[in-house]
Simulated assay, not measured.
Amino acid sequence: MSNSPHTDSVRALLFPGQGAQFVGMATDLFGSEPVARELFELASDRMGKDLIGLCTDGPQEALNATDICQPAIFVASMATLRVIELHGGSNHLESRATAGLSLGEYSALVHCGALRFEDALEVVIARGRAMQEACESTEGTMASILGLDLEAVREVVAEAATAGVVAVANVNAATQIVISGEKAAVALAGEKAQEKGARRVIPLEVAGAYHSPLMASATDKLRPILSEVEIQEPKIPFYANVSGARVSDPEEIRSGLIQQVESSVLWEPILRQLIAEGVEEVLEPGPGKVVAGLVRQVDRGVPTKSVLGKESIEELLEGTLS
């Protein structure tokens, strides 16, 4: 992967996470680019699943399973980078900084040279399985609260704790914050948020309570795996979900990856810091345009180029991708 430092770049590479998957994603890449197909075949072998078939034909319900979509999204992002590099587009991957949305942190860590692809793949597969098992063993859900700031959401979460486990899961924008936890507690927090003036509370269709204490069993399963993984100091500035800040120490990165499954994703603080430090454009390698949408919510003046299939890669290389 491209991981040379380019301090004069004004670009950040930001990687998508779970929820970006769709049937048909990356099919033209692994259908025509051997380097992409190799990555998907390796993942299929490690998973014991036909990842190419699931991405090509679905069904969507099967692709949505946490143990399937996490490696699928990760490999799609990595395949995109490999194809761009293979076709002489390394200059488009030069970046001032990198980060990833939850699962996307592993893509970012490979891009910046902190993790080897094969090691990250092993962890991502284990992470997806562990989180899937946690979802199946708990009754959790999530909801998006629009129109309240983080302080107000933390207040309603504290008040709703009388009904069970509930936590701040994702800080996506200043007034778009996702909560996660036991169903009764999430429902009560939603009611209290509306009482405080939330514009909307949107229940999310998810398999479980991601980024909450209900994922504790997944953390326990990941900890010994992550403790053995070799992590290098990033060659490109890397910004971590759990702190919302730049992290360069390998042991601090390791600790953050362990905490991340249960902790809040501080995405909006990451974006604000990147913009304050000179990022003027974003490249989103992988499926969907979730990252692009979140960047627009923080600063509409920062353009994001979302790239996955051959057409968008060709447009990127030709300088016509908008």
Rank of each mutant, 00 (worst) to 15 (best):
S77F: 04
S4F: 13
E33R: 14
P269V: 06
S4W: 06
E33D: 13
F74A: 04
K310L: 15
D57G: 14
A209E: 11
T320R: 14
R37C: 13
Y239R: 09
V282F: 08
P213C: 10
E277T: 10
E94Y: 12
R37V: 11
L257G: 03
V124R: 00
P224A: 04
P269F: 00
E105F: 12
E268S: 13
E228D: 11
V168N: 01
A79R: 01
A160Y: 00
I253A: 04
T7A: 15
I270W: 03
I125T: 01
F22I: 07
G100K: 03
E159N: 04
E139N: 14
P285Y: 09
P250I: 01
Q176K: 02
P303T: 05
S322K: 15
S255P: 02
E262P: 00
A143C: 08
A169M: 02
I236T: 04
P303N: 07
M1C: 10
V261F: 00
S2F: 15
K235V: 03
A143I: 02
G53Q: 10
R200T: 11
V23W: 13
L81N: 04
G164N: 01
Q70G: 12
M1T: 13
E191Q: 15
R246E: 15
A158Y: 00
T80M: 07
V35C: 15
V279P: 06
L150C: 06
Q132T: 02
Q260C: 06
L146E: 05
A160G: 03
M215T: 05
A79S: 11
N172M: 05
A193M: 09
W267P: 14
H111S: 12
G17R: 07
A79E: 02
V307Q: 07
L29K: 09
E195D: 14
E280N: 06
S137F: 05
I68Q: 01
V290A: 09
E105N: 10
R254K: 11
S144P: 00
V124T: 01
Q297R: 15
G293Q: 07
D8G: 08
L274F: 04
A187C: 01
S306T: 08
E205L: 14
E281M: 07
I52G: 09
F74H: 01
E315R: 14
A158E: 07
R272V: 05
D149H: 05
P5G: 13
G89F: 05
T56Q: 12
A134W: 03
A160M: 02
E318N: 15
A114Q: 05
E277F: 08
I270F: 01
E33I: 10
S263T: 02
V124Y: 02
N241L: 07
S4Y: 12
M131E: 03
T175V: 06
V298I: 13
V290C: 03
E284R: 01
N172A: 04
V261I: 14
G140A: 11
S263D: 09
V10L: 13
F117V: 05
N91K: 12
A174V: 08
E205A: 15
G286D: 06
E38N: 14
A130Q: 02
L294D: 09
S227W: 00
S217V: 05
F40L: 07
S312E: 15
